[in-house]
C-alpha cells in the first residue's frame, strides 16, 4: 500500500473517532467570553463588557480560609418566536452543560425575548430566570433572587441599566454573603455616565495601542515583534479564541426563580 493511502486511512480513522466523540448538546456552547452569552443580540457592548470584567474579577476571588473560589455569574439571552417556545428550554440543562462555577458556586441569569430573532431591536423581553448551583443555594435563595429581580429588571428602568444593577445586586450577595465583605458598593449614577460615554472599542485601546507601538518601534527587538505578531494573528485569526473563559464545572439542581414581564 502506498504511504499516501496509509496516511489517508489514518486520518479518516482519526476523523471518525473525533466525530464519534462529539456530544449532541441541546444548547449552544457558551461564548469565549463565557460570562455573557448574548444569543438574542440585545445587550449593549458596555453592559456586556461590565459583565465580563466583573465576572473575571469574581472568578479570581478567594475566601479567607481558601475554601471558596471560582464563583461565576453568567448571563445569557435567547430569542424565541413566541412565549410558548420558552418551555423548550431547560435552564438547569443549560447551567449543567456550561458547568457554571467551581464546586457548584455559580449563578445563571437567562433573558428570553419574544419576536423575530433577525430583528433584535424589535425583540421584547418576556421572561427572566435566575438559577443557582447546588452550593450557591445556601447563599442566594429563590426569595432573595426574586426580590432582586423585582428591584431591577421588573422596574421601569432602562434595560441596560437594570441589567447592570441586577449584576451588581448579585455581586453584592456573593461578595457579602460568600466572601464576607462588610459591603459592596456601586453607584448607578456613575454607571449611567459610563454607559453614555462608552466607546465600543475603548476596552482594547490601551493594549492594541501598545502592541502596534512595539511592532513598529525601532527600539523593540525582533523576537518581541515576532511574538506579538503571532499572538495578534492568532487572536484575530481564530476570533479571539486564544483567551477563553471557561466554566468551573458546576452543577445546578434546578433551584431558581422566574419573573414574567
Amino acid at each position: 500500500m502506498k504511504p499516501v493511502f496509509k496516511v489517508f486511512i489514518l486520518l479518516s480513522l482519526i476523523l471518525l473517532f473525533l466525530t464519534g466523540c462529539k456530544t449532541d448538546d441541546l444548547y449552544p456552547d457558551p461564548t469565549n467570553e463565557f460570562y455573557v452569552n448574548d444569543f438574542a443580540d440585545t445587550l449593549v457592548p458596555a453592559v456586556e463588557s461590565t459583565i465580563v470584567r466583573e465576572g473575571e474579577r469574581l472568578y479570581e476571588e478567594v475566601s479567607e480560609d481558601g475554601e471558596i473560589s471560582g464563583v461565576q455569574i453568567v448571563f445569557a439571552t435567547f430569542a424565541v418566536e413566541s412565549e410558548s417556545n420558552i418551555a423548550e428550554y431547560n435552564i438547569t440543562d443549560i447551567y449543567n452543560q456550561w458547568g457554571i462555577g467551581t464546586d457548584d458556586m455559580g449563578i445563571l441569569v437567562v433573558y428570553f425575548y419574544v419576536g423575530d430573532e433577525d430583528k433584535p431591536e424589535e425583540l421584547v423581553l418576556s421572561e427572566v430566570y435566575i438559577y443557582t448551583g447546588f452550593t450557591m443555594e445556601m447563599y442566594l435563595s429563590p426569595i432573595e433572587a426574586g426580590n432582586i429581580l423585582d428591584e431591577t429588571i421588573m422596574t421601569d428602568m432602562d434595560e441596560s441599566m437594570s441589567t447592570a444593577q441586577l449584576l451588581y445586586e448579585l455581586l453584592t450577595v456573593v461578595y457579602v454573603e460568600v466572601f464576607e465583605y462588610e459591603a459592596f458598593n456601586y453607584d448607578m449614577d456613575e454607571y449611567q455616565i459610563y454607559l453614555d460615554n462608552y466607546d465600543d472599542y475603548g476596552d482594547y485601546d490601551d493594549i492594541w495601542g501598545w502592541v502596534i507601538y512595539v511592532i513598529l518601534s525601532p527600539y523593540s527587538v525582533w523576537w518581541e515583534k515576532g511574538v506579538l505578531l503571532i499572538a495578534a494573528a492568532l487572536i484575530f485569526g481564530v476570533g479571539g479564541g486564544v483567551v477563553k473563559n471557561i466554566g468551573g464545572g458546576g452543577k445546578s439542581g434546578g433551584m431558581g426563580i422566574r419573573r414574567r414581564r
Binding site: 426569595i143 433572587a145 426580590n147 439542581g253 434546578g254
Partner: peptide, 18 residues
Amino acid sequence: YGDYMDAVWGIESALSEA
C-alpha cells in the same frame, strides 16, 4: 406573600428537576 410564592416556585422547580 411574594416571598412565599418565590419559595414555592423555587422548591417545586428543584423537586421537578430531582
